[in-house]
Design a protein around this nucleic acid. Structure first.
Lengths: 157, 157
DNA sequence: TCTCATCCCATGATATCCCATAAGAAGAAA
DNA sequence: TTTCTTCTTATGGGATATCATGGGATGAGA
């Protein structure tokens, strides 16, 4: 039996119905089930899209904030206001759909279709047209400023 | 069975009725029930809002204060005065509401609506208009001085 | 007896669940 | 390679349960 990857991969476009429901791609649901965790969404504070996370990820985030910042510090307050106040658990129905709140629909400028974009340990939800433009911009940027990146850890271990 | 996150998430606006009652959001109540703990409120000593905690969290807070400050220090005295002397357990009625004392209503400048703001292991209760301004300030701050934050722990392990 | 706080029930709105159907992908047989 | 079958995944609509909120009843303390 091959070990399943716990990464969100690929780009999948699904429809948003009149009740603002959308199917989470099967491969994404498989990751959530494999990790036995909940699905979290929040409005990205950098881009017009939604950020998708696992519940585990959010717990680690919470723990990290308390370890790195003072309980009553301004930084702690700002971070928790931006992350936890904006995110929510999204339960899936029996066919694997979630319901998008109007607030998030607006933020990501969604109407009748949405794009699930795998980002490894997280994913994003985009308006397909906007994503295509953004993706193009990133490609252009790479031509002039190539990113460097080095794997620190051995791969096959 | 998926593990439930024990974090206060999302921002939910509810009404305060003529008896000064307000429904605690269902998702917040779920956290309290899951942790099998009481709901504590006190007037924030930094902002015009109310701080909400679980009984468990208050215990952790107490422990932290005694570990970080000398028993008879000024800081220890100030913090305990500000937190424990002001805190109270708020019982919920059968439909999940609590009754706000006039003193807390004043402190948070509340009238007929209030916003429950998830902050992870705690939450806050705000006048919606005041919170919107505060949140905007935080967003502005992030543009000029983006907070960096690095996950130290592996997420999927 | 009066006042205040808590408790209990009724209602309406909303979100969640469940079933039915359609579409697509993978696999088997020709 | 082509066609047919089967299974999984996606989408639509109706039924149901849950939650927020308002009003009245009950009981304790002043």
């Amino acid at each position: 039996m091959v070990k399943k990857s716990c990464l969100f991969l690929d780009t999948i476009q699904n429809k948003i119905d009149t009740k603002l429901r959308i199917s989470v791609p099967g491969s994404f649901r498989a990751v959530l089930e494999e990790m036995n965790t909940e699905l979290i969404l929040y409005a990205s504070f950098k881009q017009p899209c939604l950020e998708g996370l696992t519940g585990d990820m959010l717990e680690v985030l919470a723990q990290g904030i308390y370890e790195q910042y003072d309980m009553f510090s301004e930084e702690e307050n700002d971070l928790t206001s931006l992350i936890f106040a904006e995110s929510r658990v999204f339960p899936l129905d029996s066919t694997g759909r979630l319901t998008l709140p109007p607030k998030l629909m607006e933020h990501a400028e969604l109407s009748d279709t949405a794009l699930f974009v795998g980002k490894g340990k997280t994913f994003q939800i985009w308006n397909p047209e906007i994503f295509a433009e953004e993706q193009q911009k990133i490609r252009e940027k790479m031509k002039t400023r190539p990113l460097t990146f080095r794997l620190k850890k051995e791969v096959n271990e």
